[in-house]
Write a protein that binds this DNA or RNA. Sequence first.
DNA 1: CTTATTTGGTTATCATGGTAACTAAAGTCA
DNA 2: TGACTTTAGTTACCATGATAACCAAATAAG
Lengths: 136, 136
Amino acid sequence: MMIEGYVKATGTGSTDGVEQALSMMRSASQLVRLLDAYFANHNLSQLKFLVLVVIDREPETDSLRQSEINQRLDVSKPVLHRTVSSMLSAGLLVRTQDNEDSRAHQLALTDAGKTALRAMLPDYFKIITEFMEGER
Amino acid sequence: MMIEGYVKATGTGSTDGVEQALSMMRSASQLVRLLDAYFANHNLSQLKFLVLVVIDREPETDSLRQSEINQRLDVSKPVLHRTVSSMLSAGLLVRTQDNEDSRAHQLALTDAGKTALRAMLPDYFKIITEFMEGER
DNA sequence: CTTATTTGGTTATCATGGTAACTAAAGTCA
DNA sequence: TGACTTTAGTTACCATGATAACCAAATAAG
């Protein structure tokens, strides 16, 4: 960017901090783009991947309510709703009635969901690791 | 996130690199969120702000073609088109016919555009600097 | 127990990013 | 010069994020 020149002109904030921040945002968005492309290749998205992860990694149980997923992932209710719906249609999740609350449902991974997650993980980490090596 | 636990399980990639990357993406997205909120308060967006910056900082001239803005900012043509249209309606930019190419137009800041930019810069840097101090 | 509040989930609408496909003007080249 | 390619800008459509407003069930308060 050419934003840096402003910092001195306005006299607000430290040049270093701003440069670091801009460089960090640039790196992060590059990496996010790489990962998004990878997810798209697998007919997924960041958020769908995280939904799989968050259910899979739950220690005591193998299913969660939508609201519980919402608490774990920083995303709005409508977006999660839409994403979960799409994942149900795609056969990655199954939904069963919640025993304790008739408004709620439990969401669990299907075999396809588990398989998809397992298939993505190695290259997910590989992409990140290689990117970070390139950054150094 | 709880992704870290997978790294060892899959044996792909370095735990450190992945943790750094996830932490970087978290920080970047927090900062982006702060900045987006700031822009929204001023009826702008990241991209609109950058369009103002990129025209303002042009050394030889005070106007640019849409395609030139496109080369400087990493954004698709349709998105830039939409954004520029909106900024024209909002009175932040003016468009004049290009002398050399009858398909093209020159885009320049209006006084309102210049004022808006000047008004935003100090706090823009302040937000970034303060965020970076908090990160250390 | 009835009313009021909170919670789980959904719908509608908007903002901002992308790609594909198109028009028209400009530039290339045989 | 006429045909081909590139470039500037636009349109149509999709994906993914958000907020506001809503229903119905559960919970709290009187």
